[in-house]
């Protein structure tokens, strides 16, 4: 271990390696985009749907691998298609929503494993997509994912208040003329793109934590939407940086470490936060 190092070395020594700098930038990007989109995911109650969309990206990743295409194209097509299918089914079908999502969740992931099992030979890259390996991110991927993440953040910056109104009161928003159904589809597509941005950093299985945990933590700390989103971004970025350094020095999986730091932040807020269930009845503090 490294306890004998001065803290400046703990922080700056890894920055000498370009792969670490790339990983750090990617983690901060993922932490930011996931926290912003995740704020709506938590308030809309879409955690399960987010998990399903991320698993649905797997067959896309494998297909891209087989066809020697860029992974984010395959993942993006699969994730967005699944997101829109979920949106369509939720508006039309007479089956319970969670049942449909459960079927799609397992079915699409099974398709991914099926395709995966047809590959004979070196598949370590694909394991990286299941569990995340941000330290292996290439410069080209980092640039591509930054553009994609920036696009999602830009769209949310344009639509934040319409998304907020239609999340809080879809009936009132719809009656006042906001296009609630197109906004719903658009948002599901944003979730899909966010997952694509995050796949390499944390992996398919843990992406849902990046989406949900920072926003859930922030919700325990404030009663204002704008403050909640800012807190979520702080938690997302903070956990990404701390988690990445921890994983570097402890030589453990980066995605899992980032998620564990977020989980610790959530538990801390749950125990100490003014809005947590554990300290209710003492009055709801107004932050911000």
């Amino acid at each position: 271990m490294t306890l004998e190092l001065p803290w400046t070395d703990v922080v700056f020594a890894p920055l000498a390696y370009p792969f670490f700098v790339r990983a750090l930038l990617a983690s901060v990007l993922v932490g930011t985009v996931c926290a912003v989109v995740g704020t709506y995911v938590v308030l809309k109650g879409l955690a399960f749907i987010g998990d399903a969309i991320s698993h649905a990206a797997f067959p896309g990743v494998v297909a891209a691998f087989l066809l020697h295409g860029p992974f984010y194209l395959g993942a993006g097509i699969a994730a967005v298609a699944t997101a829109l299918a979920i949106g369509f089914v939720s508006r039309r079908a007479r089956i319970r929503m969670d049942t449909v999502v459960g079927v799609l969740f397992a079915g699409t992931f099974a398709l991914g494993i099926f395709l995966f099992s047809t590959i004979h030979g070196y598949v370590a890259d694909l394991f990286g997509f299941l569990f995340g390996n941000v330290l292996a991110i290439s410069l080209a991927d980092l640039v591509g994912l930054s553009l994609l993440g920036g696009f999602v953040l830009g769209c949310i910056a344009l639509l934040w208040k319409e998304l907020l109104y239609s999340t809080f009161d879809p009936l009132g928003a719809g009656a006042s003329g906001l296009p609630v159904a197109p906004l719903e589809y658009l948002f599901l597509a944003f979730v899909a793109l966010t997952i694509v941005v995050s796949l390499q950093a944390v992996g398919i299985i843990l992406v849902v934590a990046m989406l949900v945990t920072p926003a859930a933590t922030a919700q325990l700390l404030t009663v204002r939407f704008a403050v909640m989103m800012r807190f979520a971004v702080l938690v997302g970025i903070g956990a990404a940086v701390v988690g990445l350094y921890l994983s570097y020095w402890l030589d453990v999986a980066s995605g899992a470490t980032i998620v564990l730091v977020e989980t610790a932040a959530f538990l801390l807020a749950l125990v100490l936060g003014p809005r947590s269930g554990l300290r209710r009845r003492r009055g709801v503090a107004v932050a911000g």
Partner: peptide, 11 residues
């Protein structure tokens, strides 16, 4: 939902 009275009316 994390909104204040003023936030709701602003909607």
């Amino acid at each position: 939902f994390p909104v204040t009275v003023g936030d709701v009316v602003m909607m």
